[in-house]
Amino acid sequence: MVNFNGNILEEEHAISINNRGLNYGDALFETIKATHGKLLFWEDHYFRLMASMRILRMEIPMSFTMEFLNEQIVELLNRNNLLNKTVRVKLFINRKEGGLYLPDTNNVDYLITVKPLESDFYLLDETTCQVDLFKDYFVSPSLLSTLKTNNKVLHVVGSIFAKENNLQNCFVLNTDKHVVEALNGNIFIVKDHVIKTPPLEDGCLKGIMRKQIIEIIQSMPEYSLEESSISPFELQKADEIFITNVIVGIQPVTGYRKKIYKNELSKGLLQKLNVKIRLTN
C-alpha cells in the first residue's frame, strides 16, 4: 500500500503515465529512516524538502506542515503493519500533470512508499567495500546538484559500472575533477586528526546524515573538520574513508585501488550517532 495525496492505494494505482516526475524529472524525494513509528532526523528532512521545493518553484500547500506530513507517513506505516518495525520511507513530490517543459501549474502531488529494514540501529558493516573513481560523466556544481531530485542518471550508470567491475561503490567527480560524493552518499576522508568532506559548492548532495556526522565531529576536540575540495590524489594518502547516508549511517571504505583503509573512526562515530538518536528521539 502507498499514500498518494492522502489516499491509501495499491501501488499499481498511484502513478499515471503523465506524471511529470516520470516524463521530465520534475520531482524531489526524501529518503527517511523510521524506527517504531519515529522518523529519524525528521526536522532536517522537512526543512530540506521545503527549501528544495522553493528552489524548484513548486507551490508548497498550506497543509504541508511537519505535523501533517508526519501523520501521513505514520498512517501509511500503520496500514502496512509496520509501526513496530524499522522502515525506509520515501516521500516523493512532483509537480502536477500538465504542460511540456513549461508546466501548466506549480501545484504538487505527493506519494509516500515504505519498505521494511532489518535493523533498528545503525550497525557497522565491515564487509568489503572496494571503490574506484567513476570518470565517464561529471557533476556540474550548482545549487541544483545539491538537491535530492529524481535526476539520477549519472548515479544509475555509475552503479552499473561499479557492478561490472566488481566494485561496491564509486566516487563521483565534478567538472573541476574534485571528488564530490559516492554513488549513494556523502564522503569523508581522514588523515591523521583532520577529517575532510567536500563543500556543497563543489556540487555534493546536501545530505541529512552528512549534517549529523559534521555536528558529531565538531563536538570531538581531538579532530578538526574541513569542508574543502578533495583531489583524487588525497584518496591514496588517507588513513580512513567512509560514506554516509540515512539508511546505512556510516559505511567504511575498505579499499581504493591498492590502498587499504582502517575503520576505527567509523566505529566511534557510529556509536556516537546511535547515542544521539536515543537522546533526541
Rank of each mutant, 00 (worst) to 15 (best):
S142N: 05
K152E: 10
D239S: 10
V253M: 09
S145L: 08
C170E: 03
D202E: 15
P199L: 12
L200I: 07
I230S: 02
V157L: 15
S228L: 01
F134Y: 15
Y261F: 15
N245I: 06
P232R: 03
K148W: 05
A238R: 00
I160F: 14
E181L: 06
S228F: 00
T244P: 05
N245F: 05
V180N: 03
L173M: 12
Q218N: 15
S228C: 13
L123N: 13
D136P: 00
T128P: 00
P221M: 06
I217Q: 04
D202L: 06
K191P: 00
E234H: 02
T244N: 06
D125W: 02
T175S: 14
V246N: 04
T127C: 00
N184W: 04
F171L: 15
P199K: 07
K259C: 10
L147H: 07
K206C: 12
S159Y: 09
I216P: 03
K211P: 01
C129W: 01
M209V: 05
Q236P: 00
N245S: 12
P199Y: 06
D192E: 15
P199I: 11
T149I: 06
F188Q: 00
I241F: 06
K258L: 14
D125Q: 12
L183P: 00
L225N: 06
I247W: 01
S219L: 13
P198S: 11
L205W: 00
I187A: 05
S145Q: 05
K206S: 15
F188I: 02
T197W: 03
I230Q: 02
E227C: 10
L154C: 07
G203P: 02
S229Q: 09
F171Q: 06
T244E: 05
L124N: 00
K259S: 11
I217V: 15
Q251E: 13
K196A: 07
Y261I: 11
E181P: 00
T146M: 06
Y137D: 07
I230K: 01
Y261C: 11
I195H: 03
F138D: 04
E234L: 13
Y223Q: 04
G207Y: 00
K258A: 13
L235M: 10
H193L: 10
E240F: 12
K211L: 11
G185H: 03
K152C: 12
H155K: 07
T197K: 02
T244A: 09
K135D: 14
D239I: 07
A162K: 01
